[in-house]
Simulated assay, not measured.
Amino acid sequence: MHEMSLALAVVDQVEEAARERGAGSVASVRLSVGELAGVVPQALAFCFELACAGTLLEGAELTAETVPARAHCVPCDREWAVGMPPDLCCPGCGTPAQDLLSGRELRIAEVHWGDPADPADPPGTPGSAADSHHPVLEES
């Protein structure tokens, strides 16, 4: 299941960024997931919860927003929603899509940090994330 490797990669990247910023915990993570990325949202959520155990992200909420797949036809300069299953031929002229504009991405869109790290806490000790929302990590 590749969702576990994706979840582990997200946790690693967010945990590294949290440590760099002195965050004691992570309250939530929002991902942008393209509809053609081949990710099963329920499997990703399950794997994310497992991957967070024992890290600064333990208890963090995961939100995965689907990014619709869109393509562009160069000859007739038309853009269309590819859909699922994907229709990769231009609905106007039938030319195969040369540009897939969106739909394959998987990126960390936003992270809300929890409380600042307490120097007395051992590394990886989750802090209280209540009422602290600080979006600071955005990747494209």
Results as ranks from 00 to 15, higher is better:
residue 88 L to R: 06
residue 59 G to R: 04
residue 88 L to C: 03
residue 35 E to R: 05
residue 13 Q to V: 09
residue 135 P to Y: 00
residue 90 C to H: 02
residue 129 A to K: 11
residue 45 A to S: 15
residue 6 L to G: 08
residue 137 L to M: 04
residue 46 F to Y: 05
residue 98 Q to K: 04
residue 31 L to F: 02
residue 47 C to H: 09
residue 131 D to R: 03
residue 18 A to F: 05
residue 101 L to T: 00
residue 60 A to D: 03
residue 120 A to V: 11
residue 137 L to V: 07
residue 33 V to A: 11
residue 135 P to I: 02
residue 124 G to M: 00
residue 59 G to W: 04
residue 2 H to D: 05
residue 115 D to E: 14
residue 67 V to A: 08
residue 57 L to N: 03
residue 63 T to Y: 07
residue 88 L to H: 01
residue 101 L to H: 00
residue 5 S to Y: 12
residue 133 H to W: 00
residue 46 F to T: 11
residue 21 R to I: 06
residue 32 S to N: 10
residue 140 S to N: 12
residue 99 D to C: 13
residue 79 E to N: 10
residue 112 H to Q: 09
residue 11 V to M: 03
residue 91 P to D: 08
residue 112 H to I: 05
residue 107 R to C: 08
residue 84 M to E: 15
residue 118 D to A: 05
residue 123 P to N: 02
residue 132 S to L: 14
residue 96 P to Y: 07
residue 126 P to Q: 03
residue 43 A to Y: 14
residue 4 M to P: 13
residue 36 L to F: 08
residue 115 D to W: 09
residue 2 H to N: 05
residue 4 M to G: 11
residue 121 D to Y: 11
residue 121 D to C: 14
residue 46 F to W: 06
residue 22 G to P: 12
residue 109 A to E: 09
residue 68 P to L: 07
residue 134 H to K: 13
residue 124 G to T: 01
residue 115 D to T: 11
residue 23 A to E: 03
residue 56 L to E: 05
residue 119 P to C: 11
residue 122 P to Y: 09
residue 116 P to L: 15
residue 60 A to K: 10
residue 112 H to F: 10
residue 11 V to T: 01
residue 72 H to E: 11
residue 114 G to I: 01
residue 8 L to W: 12
residue 7 A to F: 09
residue 75 P to Y: 02
residue 78 R to F: 12
residue 22 G to Q: 13
residue 48 F to C: 11
residue 46 F to S: 06
residue 24 G to E: 04
residue 100 L to G: 04
residue 113 W to Y: 12
residue 42 Q to K: 11
residue 121 D to Q: 10
residue 56 L to V: 04
residue 130 A to G: 08
residue 75 P to I: 00
residue 138 E to R: 10
residue 61 E to V: 01
residue 89 C to I: 14
residue 38 G to I: 01
residue 9 A to V: 06
residue 91 P to A: 04
residue 120 A to P: 11
residue 125 T to P: 03
residue 92 G to L: 04
residue 101 L to K: 01
residue 87 D to K: 14
residue 56 L to M: 06
residue 19 R to V: 15
residue 82 V to F: 03
residue 42 Q to M: 09
residue 47 C to D: 12
residue 91 P to C: 05
residue 123 P to K: 07
residue 50 L to C: 13
residue 99 D to I: 12
residue 135 P to Q: 03
